[in-house]
Design a protein around this nucleic acid. Sequence first.
DNA 1: ACCATTTACTTAATCGGTTAAGTAAATAAA
DNA 2: TTTATTTACTTAACCGATTAAGTAAATGGT
Lengths: 338, 338
Amino acid sequence: MGNITIKMLAKELNLSTAAVSKALRDSHEISERTKTRVLELAAALNYVPHPYAGSLREKKSNTIAVVIPEVADSFFSLALNGIESVAIENGYHALIYLTHERFEREKTILKDLESGRVDGVIMSVTTKTNTFDHLRSLNKMVPMVFFDRVCEEIDTAKITTNDEECGYQATQHLIDRGCKKIAILSVSESLSINAKRIQGYQRALSDNGRKPEASCIIDYSEDPDESLEQLRKCFRTAEPPDGIVATVSKMTTDIYLVCMELGLRIPDDLKVVSFSNDATVAILNPSLTTITQPAFEMGELAAKVLFKALKKKYLVLSEESTVVPSQLILRNSTSAAF
Amino acid sequence: MGNITIKMLAKELNLSTAAVSKALRDSHEISERTKTRVLELAAALNYVPHPYAGSLREKKSNTIAVVIPEVADSFFSLALNGIESVAIENGYHALIYLTHERFEREKTILKDLESGRVDGVIMSVTTKTNTFDHLRSLNKMVPMVFFDRVCEEIDTAKITTNDEECGYQATQHLIDRGCKKIAILSVSESLSINAKRIQGYQRALSDNGRKPEASCIIDYSEDPDESLEQLRKCFRTAEPPDGIVATVSKMTTDIYLVCMELGLRIPDDLKVVSFSNDATVAILNPSLTTITQPAFEMGELAAKVLFKALKKKYLVLSEESTVVPSQLILRNSTSAAF
DNA sequence: ACCATTTACTTAATCGGTTAAGTAAATAAA
DNA sequence: TTTATTTACTTAACCGATTAAGTAAATGGT
């Protein structure tokens, strides 16, 4: 729908389209007088070059794709923010695709991206991504950078945080605060970051001489009603946990709600640590101890690495992988019992 | 970067590109035998048509732009979610642009969108948008739909919520709960939705026989430190407010933090209503009474209206404007004093 | 057997830009 | 003055797909 074309400018000025194009790009082949005439008419008619015409010829779209599971999640929205900032700075455009944790959707989206629509892809896989052909196939055609939920099987740049350590730290912190039985909520078996957080949890338990059977891993359901029920069941057992690690922030609301429902006091009866980037953690009742990931920075870094690859022809992306540490921030949900 | 082209398929099969193109589109001009050969080779080589080639010819990009102030905000991220869902359903792609409340950025982005890059635009203006030429100019070339933060001056579809009424309801609710002095936090003078919320607030005050000077409108700063200071100052006056309406959700954290700092108890000393879509409002200390907007639905509706316009040639977009009501949800931040 | 139609293609133009190669006129060098 | 070079353009090809228009061969009708 872009209305004014180079052809129109050319006709109006009695020039060839080539001359107009060169004038607009300030070529030395064009006289100053002609350049002025072209520039003035272009400004007067509000000429904006059609991006797809250039893309076709240059084989460069100046567009990247961001493929993430959700956007209504503080981690991903902050990361998207970081990605978009860097994209704009580099004169690029960002297409956004949400998988909603649906594997089929991820496959469909990635297949489309093999078309040449974008010059690069930044993504975080779904909780269900357990085959990798679609990733491998796209990775052959377009530079990809994974962030947070990476795919170990694909050889490219991965921006992650120190998930294993964080799982360890969160667990150790609960142990330090006197928790005897610590549960952890798991989102997905196939997700590498989830696995790492749980490994850290298990390592902390064993470092403190706790037997493996003391571990209490709850596979968290996607269905909101079911997940609440899982928590209720967990807290109603004969020996309920007195500490819990939530590996994703949306679990926090469920934990707090079930505690209110069952009359469990945080931190007296249950201490809670959550992986979270929510701005409201400080004003929860009680305020929430968190592992807070550098979400914006991870997005920003993922985008910077991608653009580095887009600029340098032969960059080995896998060598650009980075681990950005998260922070354990102590608040009242794990304070010593009153 | 899309590797396989129709030309390659044609050469491989000893056909013209035209024949291949027609075979792929199942034209009656092509024999079944040839169609099969083409389809099989296309599948084998993983051919994906280049979108920009078609776009150029069809003058249709199958892409829309979403221009919003922020994404790390529950309202906008939910709305974006709604928009993206509808876009995918319609086989469209969504470009995301964040203005970060910067007017210059909005202008730059909109100018670029005059290029033909997208078939339509869905947007929410910045708090500082006070001239409209850039909007008018784009609106001449591309169908636009505004949502939430609309621009009254532009003649097109606007998806809003009942802001005036909500301002009224929030204020009336505080009055009903016995508040004597009610403050309201304002984000921007030029923003129509902000103005409406404040009009509702003022109408509620006057309907209850309160004099205009009883109104207490605080122009909220963008700078986080300054905004906290504004709140401290407000609560430290001789006659501090005992009720407050926050017109955007991020103000909530500030209010709670300042109350903790100054030892003010919510709801005993101060009752709070906030416009918010945050999932955590139910587990705040105390839980927060909110005006909750139908964020996802507004995004969804904005996108549906846009696609309706893209399908029907001559649709009068301004007739598609809709007001979707928000909900006042009572929680403990406005419960009667204990 | 002869013209008409159908089948199954190919050729060429198009979308809106960019650029390598070509060219006529002006200027500079020998 | 003659040749070389520079200036300031134009022509034409190209990116990848689509489609109107053209065409040769096969089939059909009488």
